[in-house]
Computed example of a mutant assay.
Amino acid sequence: MGYTIGMSSLDKKPINIQKLKEFCLINPIFKLDDSKTWTNMYDQVVLYKVNEKWEMVCAFDNDDNYAISTPPNDDLFDMSCKIADYLGLFIFGEENEIYYIPTYGKPQNHIDFEIAKSVFAENGFDINLIIEKATVEH
Results as ranks from 00 to 15, higher is better:
Met1Asp: 11
Met1Lys: 06
Gly2Ala: 12
Tyr3Ala: 15
Ile5Pro: 00
Ile5Val: 13
Ile5Gly: 00
Ile5His: 06
Met7Phe: 11
Met7Thr: 05
Met7Gln: 03
Met7Asp: 00
Ser8Cys: 07
Ser8Gly: 08
Ser8Thr: 04
Leu10Ile: 07
Leu10Asp: 00
Lys12Gly: 15
Pro14Ser: 13
Ile15His: 04
Asn16Val: 09
Asn16His: 02
Lys19Arg: 15
Leu20Gln: 02
Leu25Ile: 14
Ile26Arg: 09
Ile26Thr: 11
Asn27Gln: 06
Asn27Ser: 07
Ile29Ala: 13
Ile29Arg: 10
Phe30Lys: 03
Phe30Cys: 02
Lys31Gln: 10
Lys31Thr: 08
Asp33Met: 07
Asp33Trp: 14
Asp34Met: 12
Ser35Pro: 02
Lys36Ile: 04
Lys36Ala: 11
Thr37Leu: 07
Thr37Lys: 11
Thr37Val: 13
Trp38Met: 10
Trp38Thr: 15
Thr39Tyr: 04
Met41Trp: 01
Met41Phe: 08
Tyr42His: 09
Asp43Trp: 12
Asp43Thr: 05
Asp43Lys: 09
Gln44Tyr: 10
Gln44Trp: 05
Val45Ser: 06
Val45Gly: 06
Leu47Gly: 03
Lys49Val: 12
Glu52Thr: 10
Trp54Pro: 00
Glu55Trp: 08
Glu55Val: 12
Met56Pro: 04
Val57Ile: 10
Cys58Thr: 04
Cys58Ala: 14
Cys58Asp: 09
Ala59Asn: 01
Asp61Phe: 10
Asp61Pro: 07
Asn62Glu: 14
Asn62Trp: 13
Asn62Phe: 13
Asp63Val: 05
Asn65Glu: 15
Ala67Glu: 05
Ser69Val: 00
Pro71Cys: 03
Pro71Met: 03
Pro71Val: 08
Pro72Val: 11
Asp74Cys: 14
Asp74Tyr: 08
Asp75His: 02
Asp75Gly: 05
Asp75Arg: 01
Asp78Ile: 14
Met79Asn: 10
Ser80Ala: 15
Ser80Asn: 11
Ser80Tyr: 04
Cys81Met: 08
Lys82Pro: 08
Ile83Tyr: 05
Ile83Val: 15
Ala84Cys: 14
Asp85Met: 01
Tyr86Asn: 12
Tyr86Gln: 09
Gly88Trp: 00
Leu89Asn: 02
Phe90Trp: 05
Phe90His: 06
Phe92Glu: 02
Gly93Thr: 13
Gly93Asn: 03
Glu94Arg: 01
Glu94Ala: 12
Glu95Tyr: 05
Asn96Pro: 07
Glu97Met: 08
Glu97Lys: 09
Ile98Leu: 10
Ile98Gly: 02
Tyr100Glu: 07
Tyr100Cys: 10
Tyr100Lys: 13
Pro102Lys: 08
Pro102Asn: 09
Gly105Gln: 06
Pro107Tyr: 06
Gln108Ser: 15
Gln108Thr: 12
Gln108Leu: 14
Asn109Gln: 09
Ile111Gln: 02
Ile111Met: 08
Asp112Asn: 14
Asp112Leu: 06
Asp112Thr: 00
Phe113Tyr: 09
Phe113Lys: 01
Phe113Asp: 02
Glu114Ile: 07
Ile115Ala: 13
Ala116Phe: 01
Lys117Phe: 01
Val119Cys: 05
Phe120Thr: 00
Phe120Leu: 05
Gly124Pro: 06
Phe125Cys: 11
Asp126Trp: 00
Ile127Phe: 04
Ile127Cys: 13
Ile127Lys: 13
Asn128Cys: 12
Leu129Trp: 01
Leu129Tyr: 03
Ile130Tyr: 03
Ile131Lys: 12
Glu132Ser: 08
Glu132Leu: 05
Lys133Phe: 04
Ala134His: 05
Val136Thr: 12
Val136His: 09
His138Gly: 02
